[in-house]
Write a protein that binds this DNA or RNA. Structure first.
Lengths: 149, 149
DNA sequence: TAAAATGGTACCAAAAACGTACGGTATATA
DNA sequence: TATATACCGTACGTTTTTGGTACCATTTTA
């Protein structure tokens, strides 16, 4: 089904809430209230986003989270990578620890990188802002020209 | 991890074997021998590829499988769709049976379609032939021009 | 009629995802 | 300095998905 995890979906919902509120830090609990998502889940999601560099965190009283940069500067690929790890479609390419089981016979070892790069490029060209724009009138950046890919 | 299932990986390996052998039909058992993959797995994979229209099948004695068209006409998106179902990243958009749990609060219901389309477009521009070309000199079709996506 | 080959379905074990909980650490304020 | 707030890291049990296999039905040729 080539689908993303629910956590990634939540991430965008949460980021949308953060982008919506003007200024200041947002705590995990306030974002939980804003999104109607359970607090532990929100917290878990935020931690991953911090680790991925999508948002920043401030500890202590009055602490919270904030977008690391403007929504139109946050790439969807960055969000997905933060939530799901590196974007690579097959186990052949992801890690070097266990080499492909059919090393000898597999005639296209690593050729998935062609596809991986295509997807990576596609995701690099969609920003959080593209996803947030409610009016369907706006044309996402990747459709502005008559590009083939 | 946004990764494909192993079956999809096997599919490409099998398709490579089919593209490699000149003419005639290939049976599941012969493809099993050619790829060193267990026969039941090969069989299962082939069934899905037939259903997806990637290959054709002939029943009965001397039957077997054949590519539906030339490798450079077979899109990676077609292969992936055959093996994993429709390409849509989140459950929000895939089926209409269970509507999004946070219908009211989710402010970007369906906005993943922007990303889905980007990925679909990317996969539509890579063919099986692109993946099979062993010489790294060949430039995949989607890289021929200076496209942004 | 028998053999070869695909078609469809069902099942079990393994792996991954989901949701949650718990203890730790940093920081502002009283 | 004490305390409350809020992030940080890890771990655990349940549920879902995937992976691999088996079984029987159907089709076609010799």
């Amino acid at each position: 089904m080539i689908k993303l995890s629910k956590l990634t979906d939540y991430a965008v919902v949460i980021l949308a809430a953060m982008a919506g509120q003007e200024g200041g830090l947002a705590s995990a609990s306030s974002l939980s209230a804003a999104t109607s998502l359970p607090e532990p889940t929100v917290s878990k999601t935020l931690k991953l986003l911090v680790r991925g560099g999508v948002i920043t965190s401030t500890r202590g009283v009055n602490g919270g989270y904030a977008l690391h940069c403007a929504p139109d500067k946050i790439l969807v690929s960055t969000i997905i990578t933060a939530m799901e790890g590196p974007i690579s479609l097959t186990s052949c390419v992801e890690g070097s620890d266990d080499s492909c089981a059919m090393e000898g016979t597999c005639q296209l070892h690593g050729r998935w990188d062609v596809v991986n790069m295509a997807i990576k490029t596609a995701l690099d060209n969609v920003t959080l802002a593209d996803m947030l724009s409610r009016s369907c009138v706006k044309i996402p950046s990747f459709m502005e020209e008559n590009v083939r890919l």
